[in-house]
Design a protein around this nucleic acid. Structure first.
Length: 942
RNA sequence: AGGACUAUAGCUCAGUUGGUUAGAGCGCUACCUUGACAUGGUAGAGGUCGGCGAUUCGAAUUCGCCUAGUCCUACCA
């Protein structure tokens, strides 16, 4: 074996071997356990969040697979409508081509090409992370099967009256030319202005002052509203305003939407360009006047529409100066003109929330269009119930509240997108605009008894990407066919995801699944029984990782390492804002002056697990990765030691009596306790505790103590064959168990070592992956052995402490004296003298009776005094200093305990066992204190 | 505005139902190339657990208020 662990040399080989051998596929035996991967965007690449997410899932999957469950981890990718279309359009734009130049079919060919090319990136990354997904079942949301499911769902929901088409105000992205859902709009606070305008009354008797943050919309104003109880304006209600610039007459209406205290208490109402105004308009049956086109430029002819059937009444010419003007240009010009007309009262600075498209970043316009909607209320009802009933549990629990509060106030879901890339809406129209919904044109014609000669055409739009991902848990299993897989693996066991997509995805999956998938009794099935919600991975400063900030990390760069230049390249090419490049470069150089060295997959995975405490974001700390890389090396070298001492040796594989030493029994006992801890942590999704328990046991018990304790046995020329066999067997068996215990978290290193250790531990099999997960045997928890070793450790640490503080070289053999021990102490010494001599480098141990001991440095182990004679070794002053420090410590403790125990109330109210415990502590502390003082006096006296 | 979460050693984080002398890793100090490992070993230093109050014999842990930060949701034109 190499002297240090070299992850790069083994990882990819093992992955290929596992995959080829089919170990990632369900075994077909045992109770099922399944997880659906949250499908990443097929044309993107995985970031640290995915790395984390994959690690959690793979750990759970490998754990359950080793427990003998029939385990499926379903992989796949998402077509990500807007994001992908944008990428391809940007590529085309680089050559000066638009998608319209190509036309729909040619454009889609291009997208498919790009998907093929880029899809490999993701699957390669997933493989490198060690994820044991069943690649034979890989799915893509635009696969024929998936598309069929999407169509089926759309048609059935339409036929059930749960999908409708209507003209509504939607969030319109004027750059991408599509509607988007509420969730895709991000409102950030920005600095703007509040403009106060004077609107003259028709009768010339004065004016009202309205305030607005969006002057350009005034072209479409159809009323001014005041509060019905506002006395200032009571007699104006019903009168008309002569709207400046367009000179349109608009009424003054009373509506309690208006807040009297805000601004002047007068609000201009623009029903076609504001969600609130839309509601006001509806109540007062105002006209809707749309003044913007799809680019959010001013129309040359406004459309004037009534709420009644949204009938277009007539057009209205835009004031000539404004026709075709970009919206912010128009704003400027309107303010100037109003100023010139004497209608500008004042301009105040004002911070407001500006809605922007999460993809395009441009300001979203409420815009009146025809769109398709899912009526969510009935679906939400069932989706709320399954969580209330506990059919679905959130981990951590508090996310249920977030889920409920959103679900109980859910809006209808706008599912149509004016894109080309996606599932085309299965609806057809005839020339009079009648709607026909069906799986294909043929079906539509027969379903609606259409005249064969009737001309119909399919809707041009596609569905929101989340519409198809909402079906993910069952569409991947073959629905609407009633497949074996669907029966076996649905409902899935757990969904592992970040909280940021609870609304986008989790909620919608629950709605769709409960509506479409029922068990044999007609009870709605849930998509998953548990939702494990994890935090976001942030950079070392705690900032969200994002491409535009240039602080993203590719998990592979931590696995393989990357030099500074390449990393700089990666972070600064293909940016949306090239201006940022300089800043990003500096920040990157500061954080990674040497680039990043490769730490291997297992170290990265261990890091993710160790940071996976619930309900908390992860500030990614490179120092921890390094620490866990060192941990891998520790395991590696422990294995090296074990193999050096067991290979070609008798480890009891072929029978023969074994004699287990105290150390052997102790480490086996500790192993059982560790197994209990790990299982408990796994079952409660506390992967940080899993990692912690494994780390502690391996490093602080197996390596630090047990391996050291095995040395005196193995190196003892007089040791019996039974004893040697016992220790070798324990060495290999415990190591082999450690490997299985750690395998779900660190698949590669455990497999590599297991291949060599397994036969020595009488295990056989092709791979560690399918071995049984360790189960604690509580009969092997040996409290006597635990106690004895604790005692031994106490003595050894005492001696080492004296060595350390007295500057006695660890290499120098010393004599040790013990005094004032019990018979139990004597027994322990007798049985462990070899261990003690070896680990504390002691040449002789004497047991003192009542005789006066020589001057010595002292440590206490319980009542027993551990003495290292001073002659020639220890200098008086440093021993005085050392003892004084100890006395100080103990005296503080003594004070505290005395105070507590002299408190009447404590004695009378605290439970008896607690009082007893405190009393025992006090007497211990007292005797320690006395002995140390005594010793201190003695030393001082010389 | 409403809600959630977070605040523990210089840094990154644990701390089960209140009973600890508050832990780990990294970093720091001193010493050590001993036959698995310097990606190591041994011994140390370092915290009034964000603040104030309440409950209790006893609070890092429960409750209230406050401060700071993060994030949702809803928003005032």
């Amino acid at each position: 074996m190499e002297k240090t662990y070299q992850p790069s040399e083994i990882e990819q080989n093992w992955y290929n071997t596992w995959e080829k051998a089919g170990h990632f596929k369900p075994s077909g035996e045992g109770d099922s356990y399944s997880i659906m991967i949250p499908p990443p965007n097929v044309t993107g690449s995985l970031h640290m969040g995915h790395g984390f997410n994959n690690t959690v899932m793979d750990t759970l999957i490998r754990y359950h697979r080793m427990q003998g469950r029939n385990t499926l981890w379903q992989p796949g990718t998402d077509h990500a409508g807007i994001a992908t279309q944008m990428v391809v359009e940007r590529q085309l734009a680089a050559n000066g081509v638009t998608r319209h130049d190509l036309g729909r079919d040619k454009f889609l060919d291009k997208v498919w090409e790009w998907k093929e090319e880029s899809g490999d990136t993701i699957t390669r990354q997933i493989r490198r992370l060690g994820s044991s997904v069943d690649w034979s079942r890989e799915r893509f949301t635009m696969d024929p099967g998936m598309s069929a499911a999407v169509q089926e769902v759309f048609v059935r929901l339409y036929d059930d009256g749960l999908i409708y088409r209507g003209k509504r105000l939607v969030n319109w992205d004027p750059k991408l030319h599509t509607a988007i859902s509420d969730l895709e709009v991000l409102s950030e606070e920005e600095n703007g202005s509040m403009w106060h305008f004077r609107y003259p009354l028709e009768d010339g008797s004065g004016h009202l002052v309205v305030a607005t943050t969006r002057p350009e919309t005034m072209l479409g104003d159809t009323a001014v509203a005041v509060h019905p109880k506002d006395e200032r304006y009571a007699d104006l209600v019903g009168k008309n305003i002569r709207l400046p610039i367009t000179n349109r007459l608009i009424p003054i209406v009373a509506d309690d939407y208006v807040e009297r205290e805000f601004g002047t208490g007068c609000v201009k109402i623009t029903p076609a360009h504001d969600f609130n105004d839309y509601e006001v308009g509806k109540r007062h049956n105002l006209a809707l006047i749309n003044v913007l086109d799809r680019d959010a430029n001013i129309l040359s002819e406004f459309t004037v529409i009534t709420f009644d059937n949204y009938e277009t009444q007539h057009g209205e010419k835009a004031p000539e100066a404004y026709a075709g003007l970009e919206r912010f240009e128009a704003r400027k010009k309107i303010v100037e003109e109003l100023d010139a007309l004497g209608c500008l009262e004042k301009i105040e600075p004002h911070t407001l929330k500006v809605p922007r498209g999460d993809r395009s970043g441009v300001v979203i316009e409420p815009w009146l269009t025809d769109q398709w909607y899912v009526k969510t209320e009935p679906l939400a009802k069932e989706a709320i119930k399954v969580v209330e009933d506990g059919d679905i549990q959130f981990v951590p629990k508090q996310y249920e509240n977030m889920y409920f509060s959103w679900m109980r106030d859910i809006q209808d879901w706008c599912i149509s997108r004016q894109l080309w890339w996606g599932h085309r809406i299965p609806a057809w129209y005839d020339n009079s605009g009648n709607i026909f919904v069906g799986r294909n044109e043929e079906e539509v014609r027969s379903k609606y008894n259409l005249d064969p000669s009737a001309e119909i055409h399919q809707d041009e739009d596609v569905l929101d990407t989340w519409f198809s991902s909402a079906l993910w848990t069952f569409s991947t299993l073959g629905w609407p066919e009633e497949t074996e897989e669907l029966k076996t693996f649905h409902s899935t066991d757990v969904l592992v995801t970040g909280f940021d997509i609870i609304f986008f995805w989790v909620a919608r999956m629950i709605m769709m699944t409960t509506h479409f998938i029922k068990d044999e009794n007609g009870k709605p099935q849930v998509p998953f029984k548990t939702v494990y919600v994890h935090g976001l991975v942030r950079d070392a400063q705690g900032a969200k990782m994002s491409k535009s900030k240039g602080n993203v990390l590719d998990p592979l760069d931590i696995i393989d390492g990357i030099d500074l230049d390449t990393l700089l390249d990666k972070r600064t090419t293909g940016m949306m804002q090239p201006k940022m490049a300089k800043k990003i470069a500096k920040q990157t150089k500061d954080e990674f002056p040497e680039g990043i060295s490769g730490y291997g997959t297992d170290a990265l995975r261990f890091t993710f697990c160790s940071l996976a405490s619930t309900g908390r974001d992860i500030k990614f700390d490179m120092g921890r990765v390094e620490g866990y890389r060192n941990f891998c090396n520790k395991i590696w070298n422990a294995a090296r030691y074990v193999l050096m001492n067991t290979e070609e040796q008798d480890c009891g594989q072929n029978g023969g009596d074994v004699n287990l030493s105290l150390a052997d029994r102790w480490i086996v006992s500790r192993l059982q306790q560790t197994e209990l801890q790990v299982a408990k942590a796994m079952d409660s999704y506390r992967l940080d505790h899993v990692a912690q328990a494994i780390y502690e046991f391996v490093w602080n018990e197996y390596c630090d103590w047990y391996l050291e304790l095995s040395k005196p046995v193995l190196w003892d020329d007089n040791a019996s064959p039974e004893t040697l066999r016992g220790t070798r067997q324990t060495l290999v068996r415990v190591l082999e168990t450690i490997l299985r215990l750690a395998h779900p978290v660190m698949p590669y290193i455990t497999e590599e070592i297991w291949q060599r250790v397994a036969p020595l531990a009488s295990k056989s099999g092709e791979t560690i992956m399918t071995q049984g997960y360790p189960i604690a045997d509580e009969n092997r928890i040996d409290e006597n052995a635990d106690g004895d070793i604790e005692w031994l450790k106490g003595v050894i640490i005492g001696v080492r402490n004296i060595r350390g503080e007295m500057n006695i070289s660890p290499a120098k053999p010393i004599t040790l004296m013990l005094k004032n021990g019990t018979t139990e102490d004597q027994r322990r010494l007798e049985q462990n003298e070899t261990f003690l001599k070896s680990l504390a480098k002691i040449e002789a141990v004497t047991w003192l009776g009542d005789e006066e001991p020589p001057l010595a440095a002292t440590q206490l182990v319980g009542e027993m005094e551990v003495l290292v004679p001073m002659a020639g070794l220890i200098d008086k002053d440093s021993e005085i200093a050392r003892l004084s420090k100890e006395v100080d410590k103990v005296s503080k403790e003594l004070q505290r305990l005395k105070g507590k125990l002299s408190n009447e109330k404590f004695i009378s109210k605290a439970p008896e066992d607690v009082v007893e415990k405190e009393k025992a502590k006090l007497s211990d502390a007292q005797s320690t204190f006395d002995k140390l003082n005594e010793q201190l006096e003695k030393i001082k006296a010389i």
